[in-house]
Design a protein around this nucleic acid. Structure first.
Length: 277
DNA sequence: ACTAGCCTATTTCACAGCCT
DNA sequence: AGGCTGTGAAATAGGCTAGT
């Protein structure tokens, strides 16, 4: 195995070590970023705001954590504080992804490191339900969109900001709160983590509503396959990056939850549920 | 008009190297 | 050893533009 590959394999971690090592794990990527990655002084950008996510989570009360567990996002509660993500390393890994085969091949002839949508569940602990977020049964009306907007505190028509969601999530919720308030919290939390981590929009402090059909009924949020949605979003980002690279355009923005590639998904092959194989 | 994507400027932070 | 400084990378913020 070449040294560069060994470095990358050292860098890539298991979900368990992600929680244990937290910040150090990703920071070490700087040293691990192989010489094969771009050495030009291109400034990379990403809308992943894992610091924001962990800050918001750290401020959640026990009852709010209980509500998060109810919608199946309990793994998000255990995401460690990561000060900085090595974007160069993320970019390097993204360029090594074989989208069709769902694997990372670090060098020609090297051992493929395969990954699957359900690895998002193992890494980040988000729901991997049976229902497809883009399925036929998740159509959403404009009235429902308006209802959700009002519920999560987007009262201004132009407001689709993650920062206002942050404020909304911080509002007091407890056992005595109404059902509507609790459901609104759940919806706001999902929109916040999707927009901040799993499916970040390319625009700063902005969220898309493509998946809102899956949150319109807070009770059913955990029944949807958020892993597949995040996975596909990430693969689209990889395709885009590869197209830009092939066209000799130096990509400077990384979409999708590229942090996923820095955490070892390959270990999950050992214990994938049979139903998902 | 609105939304989403792209681009760039500024701020913040970490770290290496130098000096005392 | 500890403090200071310069540099580079990441985070943040906002403007511009193209598409619908």
């Amino acid at each position: 195995m070449e040294e560069g590959e060994q470095q990358v394999r050292r860098q890539i971690q298991t979900p368990a070590t992600m929680e244990r090592d937290g910040e150090q794990a990703v920071d070490e990527g700087e040293a691990a970023a192989p010489s094969g990655s771009t050495s030009r002084s291109t400034k990379h950008t990403s809308r992943i705001a894992i610091q924001k996510v962990t800050e918001v989570i750290a401020a959640l009360s026990d009852y709010k954590r209980f509500l998060v567990e109810e919608i199946g996002f309990e793994g998000v509660l255990r995401i460690p504080m990561i000060q900085k993500i090595n974007l160069k390393f993320s970019k390097f890994l993204m360029t090594k992804v074989d989208v069709k085969e769902h694997c990372i091949i670090l060098r020609d002839g090297g051992t493929p490191i395969t990954f699957y949508p359900e690895d998002f569940h193992k890494v980040f602990g988000i729901p991997c339900g049976q229902r497809d977020i883009h399925g036929k049964d998740v159509d959403i009306t404009s009235e429902a969109i308006e209802f959700i907007r009002n519920s999560i505190g987007w009262t201004e028509k132009s407001d689709r900001s993650l920062s206002s969601l942050e404020v909304f999530i911080g509002k007091e919720i407890n056992e005595l709160s109404s059902r509507l308030e609790k459901d609104s919290f759940k919806m706001a939390f999902v929109v916040f983590v999707m927009g901040s981590l799993f499916a970040p929009c390319t625009k700063h402090d902005h969220s898309t509503i493509y998946y809102w059909g899956a949150i319109k009924d807070a009770e059913n949020i955990s029944l949807f396959n958020w892993c597949k949605y995040s996975f596909n979003f990430l693969l689209e980002a990889v395709c885009k990056l590869k197209l830009e690279t092939d066209a000799n355009i130096t990509p400077n923005h990384l979409s999708g939850c590229h942090l996923f590639f820095q955490v070892n998904p390959s270990k999950s092959q050992l214990d994938r549920p049979n139903s998902l194989k």
